[in-house]
Amino acid sequence: MIYFENVSKIYDGESHPVVNNVSFFVRKGEILTLLGSSGAGKTTLLKMVNRLCEPSQGQVTLDGRAVHTFDPIELRRQIGYVSQNIGLFPHMTVEDNITLVLRLQKKNKKSRKKRADELLELVDLNPRDYATRFPDELSGGEQQRVSVAKALAADPEYLLMDEPFAALDPIIRDELQTELLRLNTALNKTILFVTHDINEALRLSNTIGIMHKGKLEQIGTRAELLQSPANAFVKSFMATALTARNED
């Protein structure tokens, strides 16, 4: 379980905090989506889990243990991270990219190759075709599949995903969302997902947190957000979904 406890973040010289006293938790095995427009602070919150960013106040705990007590390198090797920009090294093949963290853990070449093939199958890419390709030889959708495979390489308990499908076209985005759901039914990871796309949020998660200018406006199930919005902002935010989606 990931627990954010009164977390705030303010940069030196800034007057407004980027993250303002946020508390919530992500249950084991669930996909929780942080939703909000740019600058809402959701990415900053995400990055506090693997210590790419440190809170000014408050703390983040993983299964009860404060994140800042972990060695940051070890911590990151046990958390999968997928970002919006393609996190693949252009000078390494797909399989080398995927198994990078295993290489850091000194796993031998044979087991790494085997794992790379497994993971490629998992994200629905044929290993024989894709293993020795280079990232610039893949389409956007294929690249993000590989990124997901990479994030899963060390079989981490937690996955952090920062608007991973934002740069892709809608059809591919839809495919990948389906993939993710399918994957997690089998793998049961704890996923913290960040997006500005409300329909994506509604599709992927049961629990959604709405953020606005650093504050967590409301967190709850889809039903709760739709039927009992905490304030006017949440209400109008959810309204955009209804008009676009025309269901629920």
Partner: peptide, 21 residues
């Protein structure tokens, strides 16, 4: 900077980032 962040997020030390990336 993006690649550097990816390297950090994957858990590379500064030294590893240097010679791997």
């Amino acid at each position: 900077a993006q690649l550097l962040e990816t390297a950090t997020a994957t858990g590379l030390t500064a030294y590893q980032t240097l010679y791997i990336l």
